[in-house]
């Protein structure tokens, strides 16, 4: 990993191109994500976000370009990348027909954690979420807001270097949405880097830096304040509308 202004680079992307046939979903992406930051990855539907996230998490290979995640090369060490990241999305997170505890044990097992450590962290996690009484409930039986908070905690159970969150708070009530962000801040305090997509523009303001994709390119990348200044906008929503509509 390289050093730059005493910030450690944890994701390095240079000239990333991804083509599907003639269609260029990612056009020459260049960006770095620093260790311990909350990096917001925004863009309109179809702008190429999902394609990029799949590549960064080792699920898909780039057509060309350099991509290093947690110090590993996506072409050669995709499996190492997978071991060192966590992933959660709104659509798929936990197994509905397993209990809370079983889900935790399952994910801990997948990431090769020892039984003793899984037990310790399960206890820790459930008491932090005030869900100890629900340990033996099926996921299908617990409310959505809890599911999302639990899914996040499970995604960082193995203390990954980076956690990818794909629209983690879609449809969640406004209080639970904010509690979810409390969990994100706690993970950051533990040194975990957070890479997050969202359609809620107020959440874009909670990120340290935000990139906005338009038509397969990164159209802007800066701190929320920097972006607002650059585009003469009062909020991230205005920045987004200006960029994505252009």
């Amino acid at each position: 990993m390289k050093e730059q202004d005493d910030k450690q680079i944890i994701i390095h992307v240079d000239n990333l191109v991804k083509k599907f046939g003639d269609f260029e979903a990612n056009k020459d992406l260049c960006f770095d994500v620093y260790k311990g930051e909350i990096f917001g990855f925004l863009g309109a539907n179809g702008a190429g976000k999902t394609t990029a996230i799949k590549i960064l998490s080792g699920l898909s290979s780039p057509t060309s370009g350099i991509v290093e995640v947690a110090g590993f090369d996506v072409y050669k060490n995709a499996d190492d990348i997978k071991r060192n990241i966590g992933y959660m999305s709104q659509k798929f997170s936990l197994y509905e027909d397993l209990t809370v505890k079983e889900n935790i044990r399952f994910y801990g097992g997948i990431y090769g954690m020892r039984a003793k450590l899984i037990k310790e962290r399960t206890h820790e996690l459930l008491s932090r979420l005030e869900m100890t009484d629900y340990a033996d409930k099926l996921i299908a039986e617990i409310p959505l807001g809890w599911k999302q908070k639990l899914a996040f905690s499970v995604a960082v159970l193995h203390r990954p270097k980076i956690v990818f969150l794909d629209e983690p708070t879609g449809g969640v009530d406004p209080i639970t949405r904010r509690q979810f962000w409390d969990l994100i801040y706690e993970a950051v305090e533990d040194g975990i880097t957070v890479f997050v997509t969202t359609h809620y523009m107020d959440e874009a303001e909670y990120c340290h830096r935000v990139s906005i994709m338009v038509d397969g390119r990164i159209a802007a990348l800066d701190t929320p304040d920097g972006l607002k200044q650059q585009y003469g906008a009062g909020s991230m929503n205005d920045v987004f509308l200006k960029l994505a509509r252009a």
């Binding site: 863009g43 309109a44 539907n45 702008a47 709104q90 629209e167 879609g170 449809g171 359609h199 523009m201 929503n237 987004f240 509308l241 994505a244 509509r245």
Partner: peptide, 10 residues
């Protein structure tokens, strides 16, 4: 408008 970006929502 669920899961739809801010521009398309508008």
């Amino acid at each position: 408008t669920t899961g739809v970006d801010a521009v398309s929502r508008k």
